[in-house]
């Protein structure tokens, strides 16, 4: 496979597990989400607003979601959704990233489904040898919030959460995994 074909395959893999997340009604904001495991979609707390949340996968279906857990401090939310027919993402620990590693962001800016941007890891913000935040030199737009940051193998390494001085700031997959486990225990 050529480099271009491989890139297209990696993008397709990430898009399969990316959904659009929005509130009900015209005024509701929208963002992105990741099919983390069967029945579980992960997004940012600032995307999963209270009340009804709708999830739209790339297959065109619209599914109702329930906010199972939301933590504004970590800016993460777990949605309970019927994920029948959807492919959960392949998750890799963020520790596999190095400064300079190729990364891809997939999301729904302006309601565009599955928009892709690429770049490299700019900096890894660490605390006690654990990655706290991934800063990537990748262009993000507000609708990217809650969407995946993927690696060169199409695995999800983080959840895009905000734009920090022109850099994409993503929550490492390990932090997300811990949050999902806590949410499921509590539920």
């Amino acid at each position: 496979m050529t480099l271009a074909d491989q890139l297209a395959a990696v993008v397709a893999q990430l898009r399969r597990s990316t959904v659009q997340v929005r509130g009900r009604g015209a005024a509701a904001g929208s963002g992105s989400g990741i099919v983390w495991k069967p029945g579980v979609i992960v997004t940012n707390a600032h995307v999963a607003t209270k009340g009804f949340t709708l999830v739209e996968p790339a297959d065109g279906s619209v599914r109702e979601a329930r906010v199972v857990a939301s933590d504004p401090r970590r800016d993460l939310a777990v949605l309970g959704v019927d994920t029948t027919g959807l492919t959960p993402a392949d998750i890799a620990p963020a520790g596999t990233l190095r400064v300079g590693s190729l990364v891809l962001a997939v999301g729904n800016p302006f309601g565009l489904s599955g928009a892709v941007t690429t770049g490299i890891v700019h900096k890894l913000s660490e605390r006690r040898r654990r990655t706290r935040l991934i800063l990537a030199d990748v262009r993000l737009l507000p609708g990217n919030s809650g969407g995946p940051l993927g690696d060169a193998a199409g695995r999800v390494v983080g959840v895009n959460a905000m734009i920090l001085r022109g850099l994409a700031a993503a929550i490492p997959s390990d932090v997300v995994e811990r949050f999902v486990r806590e949410a499921q225990l509590a539920a």
Partner: peptide, 10 residues
């Protein structure tokens, strides 16, 4: 090759 490119950059 994509993974190789990524490793090469890092």
């Amino acid at each position: 090759t994509l993974q190789m490119l990524s490793d090469n950059l890092a």
